[in-house]
Measured scan of single mutants.
Amino acid sequence: PEEVRRLVEELYRKGVSPEQVKKILKKQGIDEREIEKVLRRIG
Protein backbone atom coordinates (compact mmCIF):
# COMPACT_ATOMS: atom_id res chain seq x y z
CA PRO A 1 0.00 0.00 0.00
CA GLU A 2 0.95 3.61 -0.60
CA GLU A 3 1.23 4.41 3.09
CA VAL A 4 3.71 1.59 3.73
CA ARG A 5 5.82 2.72 0.80
CA ARG A 6 5.90 6.26 2.13
CA LEU A 7 6.94 5.16 5.62
CA VAL A 8 9.67 2.87 4.32
CA GLU A 9 11.06 5.50 1.94
CA GLU A 10 11.07 8.13 4.66
CA LEU A 11 13.09 5.95 7.03
CA TYR A 12 15.36 4.77 4.23
CA ARG A 13 16.17 8.34 3.21
CA LYS A 14 17.12 9.15 6.80
CA GLY A 15 19.74 6.42 6.52
CA VAL A 16 17.95 3.75 8.54
CA SER A 17 19.15 0.28 7.55
CA PRO A 18 16.65 -2.09 5.93
CA GLU A 19 16.77 -4.36 9.00
CA GLN A 20 15.92 -1.44 11.28
CA VAL A 21 13.19 -0.26 8.93
CA LYS A 22 11.64 -3.71 9.19
CA LYS A 23 11.85 -3.76 12.99
CA ILE A 24 10.39 -0.29 13.39
CA LEU A 25 7.46 -0.84 11.05
CA LYS A 26 6.70 -4.31 12.36
CA LYS A 27 6.29 -2.76 15.81
CA GLN A 28 3.69 -0.50 14.24
CA GLY A 29 1.79 -3.55 13.10
CA ILE A 30 2.72 -3.43 9.43
CA ASP A 31 2.99 -6.73 7.56
CA GLU A 32 6.61 -7.74 7.08
CA ARG A 33 5.92 -8.98 3.55
CA GLU A 34 4.68 -5.53 2.54
CA ILE A 35 7.78 -3.94 4.00
CA GLU A 36 10.08 -6.34 2.16
CA LYS A 37 8.29 -5.73 -1.13
CA VAL A 38 8.91 -2.01 -0.80
CA LEU A 39 12.52 -2.47 0.29
CA ARG A 40 13.20 -4.69 -2.72
CA ARG A 41 11.76 -2.04 -5.00
CA ILE A 42 13.88 0.70 -3.45
CA GLY A 43 17.09 -1.28 -2.97
Rank of each mutant, 00 (worst) to 15 (best):
L11G: 01
K22M: 14
Y12P: 00
D31G: 06
V16Q: 07
E10I: 08
K37C: 11
I35V: 09
I30L: 13
V38I: 11
K37T: 10
I35K: 00
R40D: 15
G15I: 02
R13H: 12
Y12A: 06
R41W: 15
Q20A: 12
L39R: 00
E2I: 09
V38F: 04
K26G: 13
P1V: 09
L7P: 00
L7K: 11
R33N: 13
L11A: 03
V21E: 00
K27G: 10
E36L: 05
E32Q: 06
V8H: 01
I42E: 06
R41Q: 15
G29S: 03
R41L: 15
P1N: 13
R5K: 14
K27E: 09
L39W: 01
I30Y: 14
E36G: 02
P18M: 07
E2V: 09
Q28F: 09
E36K: 04
Y12M: 12
V4G: 01
V8N: 00
R40A: 14
V8L: 02
K23C: 05
K22W: 10
V16R: 09
E36C: 09
S17P: 13
G15Q: 04
V8Y: 02
E3N: 09
E2Y: 07
P1A: 10
R5T: 14
E32P: 06
E3A: 11
E19Q: 13
R41V: 15
G15E: 03
Y12Q: 04
P1S: 14
G43K: 13
E34N: 03
V21W: 03
L11H: 15
G29T: 01
R33M: 08
V21D: 00
E9K: 12
I30S: 01
V21Q: 01
V21M: 09
V16W: 12
V4M: 09
Y12N: 03
R13V: 08
R33G: 11
V16D: 04
I30K: 02
V4T: 07
L39I: 11
E3R: 06
P18W: 04
Y12W: 09
K14T: 10
K26L: 12
K37V: 07
S17M: 07
I35R: 00
K37F: 05
K37P: 02
R5M: 13
K37G: 05
I42Y: 10
E19V: 10
L7V: 06
L25E: 00
G43H: 15
K14R: 11
I24M: 09
G43V: 15
G43F: 15
E3F: 06
E9H: 11
I24K: 05
L11W: 05
K37S: 09
G29N: 06
Y12F: 12
L25D: 00
Q20L: 11
V38N: 04
I35L: 03
K23L: 13
L7R: 12
G15W: 03
G43I: 15
R33P: 04
R33D: 14
L11Q: 02
G43D: 15
G15A: 03
E19D: 12
Q28R: 08
V4P: 02
K22H: 06
D31E: 09
P18L: 08
V16F: 10
G43Y: 15
I30W: 14
E32S: 06
L25H: 00
Q20E: 08
V21T: 08
R41H: 15
V38D: 01
V21P: 00
E34S: 05
I30V: 09
K23A: 12
L7A: 09
E2A: 10
R6C: 04
R6S: 07
E10L: 07
L39F: 03
E34D: 07
K26T: 13
L25A: 03
R33L: 12
R33V: 12
G43M: 14
G29R: 02
Q20F: 10
Y12K: 06
Q20D: 11
S17V: 09
G15V: 02
K27Y: 09
E32C: 06
V4L: 14
K23Q: 13
V4K: 01
S17A: 10
V38W: 14
K22P: 02
V38L: 05
L25P: 00
E10V: 07
I30G: 01
V16A: 09
E32W: 04
E9P: 00
E3H: 08
K14G: 09
I30F: 14
L25N: 00
R13C: 11
V38E: 15
E9R: 13
K26Q: 09
I24T: 09
P1W: 13
K23D: 10
L39N: 01
R13D: 06
E2S: 11
R6G: 07
R5S: 14
E19L: 13
K27D: 10
L7Q: 11
Q20Y: 09
E36P: 00
E36R: 04
L7E: 03
I42N: 03
R13W: 14
G29K: 03
E9N: 05
K26C: 04
R5F: 15
E9V: 14
L25R: 00
V16Y: 09
R41Y: 15
E2L: 07
I42R: 01
R40M: 13
Q28S: 10
S17W: 08
E3M: 09
E36I: 05
P1Q: 11
E3K: 09
Q28V: 08
E10T: 08
K22S: 05
S17E: 07
K27I: 07
Y12G: 03
E9S: 06
L39Y: 02
E34Q: 06
E19I: 12
G29P: 01
I30E: 02
I30R: 02
V16H: 09
P18F: 04
R5Q: 15
S17H: 10
R40L: 15
E3I: 08
E9F: 11
R6K: 12
R33C: 05
E19S: 13
I35F: 02
G43R: 13
K26D: 03
E2G: 11
P1I: 08
E36D: 10
V38Y: 05
L11Y: 04
E9Q: 10
D31K: 06
E19Y: 14
I24S: 05
L7W: 06
P18V: 10
K37Y: 08
Q20I: 09
I35E: 00
E19F: 12
V8G: 01
